[in-house]
Design a protein around this nucleic acid. Structure first.
Lengths: 339, 339
DNA sequence: TTGAAAGCGCTAACAC
DNA sequence: GTGTTAGCGCTTTCAA
């Protein structure tokens, strides 16, 4: 193994100089820097992560706790993972992965063994048992999602309340007098995640504000049959010119579109449909779905920037604990033109 | 921070005894073990990973290189990640994540900085530029997927050749005289992955063997429209009683089923359809799809067991370099009954 | 069956 | 601007 001593010897400097060249924590003459860098290059030296962590008390690793649901495909988890990994790499950090099935044990291990400098935890339940544990760790923890009580932890999430409001406003603009929200499947409800009530609260209060009707029908399953049933119920309730809002659109969109077509209804002509999904999904459906954006990449980036702010102790105490990413509505083909 | 010295002090033993109690690498009297374990418990001691790695030259971390495709959702990546993480935890190891967009740099970093003891690399191209780099590292590397030249590295994958054969044999059993394979979308072809030719080779040679017709139609896109077009072409080619084989069924299945229904054809009555997908996907479609299993969890488990065999230096040199997991056909609702 | 002590490779005072 | 040196917390000889 090539060590910094080898580099020092080859460059004719002390080991600490090599360290300082790499960290830039003190000024180095141009000549010395050149020689050290040449030696590093020549030996293809890379610092030993364990030794560095031990000496510096910094692992340069971020812990990431992802949901774990064998059988179920938690759609759209990958963009989070990818973005978090990218942001970490941009600051010369790596990502160590822990699955949620470990529960709090994963958290205490990450922190207790000093496997990472900070933790990002996803898929936060409203009353998540891991929150108090996370709050007691001596590494910073960022939540993606907002629990009922964040116990002083930083949270980042989409502003689902605004998302609901935007969707309703689009329906109002399209001239609908009633919106039906095709709610969340039982599996999602069971997970007791906060965004469900936040989104439905957003649609409900916006509907009141604009004086239009508001109903929620919950699919009794995921997949095609669930969507079909929910659409049928929604159409019964809605009467003519229904305005449909579809929260969990990532997976549901194609099924709901198909169900509408089966009823002889063309979205954008006979009904309006506003989805809550990423722009990518909205653009690739046929027809393209008017959507309120749900951008995992934006959320992840915000989380990571907050995290590094905390790590660098540029810890602005004025910073908000809960950061909500404002969604954006993009009108595409599935909403009626303004009458 | 609680260190092993604190534990030693509290238990009234030396630091090395604490270490040996934890590792079990030498015999300890019952009495001493009890005292040490009590102290560990009382102080909630956890060993410092960096220090341990430095002293023992073992990080207890597995590097995992996953594909990176922003925009595209690489369906079915999660089961791999989850299973690999689980298997790692079962051996008290953690997983550090690297995305493929780093290319070879990710590999050299993992090995050079001693961030992990072994590497699992996914999404292997037929002529993957990372293979020679991986082969030159001083940590073991396991590939999930088989490149043209594995450079002596261990590979684990589904036996796509057998998968193709099984699908054709089911069609023969159902009395078809011609099979049409709805091939891979251009995006998959471009990635130049070996399993495409292995699967199509499997169907082709089995068709020859059984003396039945064999055609391949490639969808010109992913998603609904691609599936629709491919099904139309397939039906034109196939004539009556077509037997359709669908390799990339994870994402395509619902679209293909819908396209068939649009043509007034009921799978299992008018046409046969054999998918290549996980049992979970096959079971949850309507109708349930007869499938050749593609079980990421099995593949991942095999990869991890090979990996730990290598790490434990129970390195059986007789072990095969390429391990192919044999798929299994399950007859469900989409194949015709034997006439 | 146990302890003492060296050293893994690095960083960061402290010295000059 | 650079070198010397004392650890970081653990494992593992070596010695008893």
């Amino acid at each position: 193994m090539v060590t910094s001593r080898d580099v020092a010897r080859l460059a004719g400097v002390s080991q600490s100089t090599v360290s300082y060249v790499m960290s830039g924590r003190r000024s180095i003459s141009e000549e010395t820097r050149r020689r050290v860098e040449a030696a590093i290059e020549q030996l293809t030296y890379q610092p030993n992560a364990g030794a560095r962590a031990l000496a510096s008390q910094r692992t340069q690793v971020i812990g990431l706790v992802i949901p774990f649901a064998p059988g179920v495909e938690p759609s759209g988890l990958l963009p989070f993972i990818e973005t978090i990994a990218s942001c970490a790499r941009a600051e010369d950090h790596d990502v160590i992965l822990v699955t949620a099935d470990e529960g709090s044990a994963g958290l205490t291990r990450l922190a207790g063994r000093r496997l990472c400098d900070a933790i990002v935890m996803m898929d936060i339940g409203a009353e998540d048992a891991r929150i108090p544990v996370a709050a007691s760790l001596d590494v910073p923890v960022i939540l993606i999602g907002v629990p009922d009580d964040s116990a002083g932890l930083h949270c980042v999430d989409v502003d689902f309340d605004s998302a609901g409001r935007l969707a309703v406003e689009e329906m109002v603009a399209a001239g609908h007098e009633k919106v039906v929200v095709i709610g969340y499947a039982p599996a999602v409800i069971e997970r007791n995640v906060n965004y469900v009530k936040r989104f439905l609260g957003g649609t409900a209060s916006a509907a009141v504000l604009h004086g239009i009707g508001h109903e929620v029908v919950a699919p009794d399953a995921t997949g095609r049959e669930g969507a079909r049933g929910a659409v049928r119920k929604a159409l019964e309730i809605a009467g003519s010119r229904p305005g449909l809002i579809l929260p969990n659109s990532e997976v549901q969109t194609p099924h709901v579109l198909q169900a509408l077509l089966d009823h002889g209804l063309v979205p954008g002509r006979d009904v309006s449909l506003v989805g809550l999904c990423t722009d990518a999904v909205a653009e690739t459906s046929t027809p393209q779905v008017t959507n309120v954006s749900l951008e995992p990449r934006d959320v992840s980036r915000r989380a990571m920037s907050t995290l590094f702010r905390l790590l660098d102790r540029r810890d602005d105490p004025a910073a908000e604990l809960v950061e909500l990413v404002t969604p954006r509505l993009t009108r595409r083909e599935t909403t009626l033109a303004v009458p």
